[in-house]
Amino acid sequence: MNIFRLVGDLSHLLAIFVLLLKIWKSRSCAGVSGKSQILFALVFITRYLDLFTNFISVYNSLMKVIFIASTVATVYLMYIKFKATYDSNHDTFRIEFLVVPVGGLAFLVNHDFTPLEILWTFSIYLESVAILPQLFMISKTGEAETITSHYLFALGSYRALYLLNWIYRYYFEGYFDLIAVVAGCVQTILYCDFFYLYITKVMWGKKLSLPA
């Protein structure tokens, strides 16, 4: 464990709970893409299948349980409890256009052709594009609530911090995983446009609105 990965995991945890609290407190999921949340739930479920078979540490197992539970809870709040506030008219990204190619790529490019490894690879590739429905929804509505932009900032920062973690681990531990690094770069690059808007607008107390 290193500081980059720890801060990254905490930033990830913060993002998930900021979103969960926003939906719970405001009893509304307006402006939030349910499709992205479904993809994130799929990412965690396919990645943490080794939760019971491969014990790494208490921290690792605890975080896996929290990530799965909180994301499933978010999907539940969006599609069942506060379904009436779900903005399906703007959440129209065809996620099958993400899941199918990612699934195919996981079969073709992986470290080991075993079910668990292919599912892990699928999860890594899927996570890199899972935010697209959310970013697409914001581009359609033209704006995002400030709390939603804080959620996105924390979520985007987590994988950017993981990139620093991989640089650290490469030099100090000789650890390198090309699949995770490439997917992590793609994932972080997708946030660049948002990071620019967040830093130039939200940081100065303005609302995040995309240039029309």
């Binding site: 080991d112 892990w120 973690n165 995770a180």
Partner: peptide
């Protein structure tokens, strides 16, 4: 290039 400790990252 695989990490011997298996999947130790979240």
């Amino acid at each position: 290039d695989k990490d011997t400790k298996g999947k130790d990252e979240l």
